[in-house]
Design a protein around this nucleic acid. Structure first.
Length: 108
DNA sequence: GGTGTGACCAGCT
DNA sequence: AAGCTGGCCACAC
């Protein structure tokens, strides 16, 4: 696999089903870098440059909080995108987080 | 090849 | 309760 850590993250994030979200820690654990969720977030930072679109708005922190909303070009963009997919977001965090949470590697 | 950094997490103060 | 620190690992300079 020549795929860099970033590309692996992109693939996983793209696999997130519509109306579902995942966490940095879950992705990190899935990739094997369990103790380093920071890499996932950092990968998302670079995801902006990716040719293929990466639904980074479906990636939140462990609390279901939209920590990276500022990186979507606007503080309200991320929440709006999530709501557009049927995900309830209040105060920058996902209300039904437990319901929409999707773990990488989980069969649909 | 060392240094810095990052959208996290957990623990301590 | 809220803020700070360390730890963790991969990438860019």
């Amino acid at each position: 696999m020549e795929d860099s850590f970033f590309e692996k993250v992109y693939k996983v994030v793209r696999k997130v089903p519509y109306g579902r979200v995942t966490t940095y820690g879950a992705i990190a654990e899935y990739l094997g870098t369990k103790g380093s969720a920071r890499m996932v977030g950092w990968a998302m930072n670079s995801a902006h440059t990716e040719t293929l679109q990466v639904p980074a708005h479906r990636v939140v922190n462990r609390n279901g909080l939209l920590t990276g909303k500022h990186h979507f070009g606007g503080p309200a963009v991320m929440a709006q995108l999530l709501e557009s997919e049927g995900i309830l977001v209040v105060d920058d965090k996902i209300v039904n987080f437990a319901e929409v949470f999707w773990r990488p590697g989980t069969p649909l």
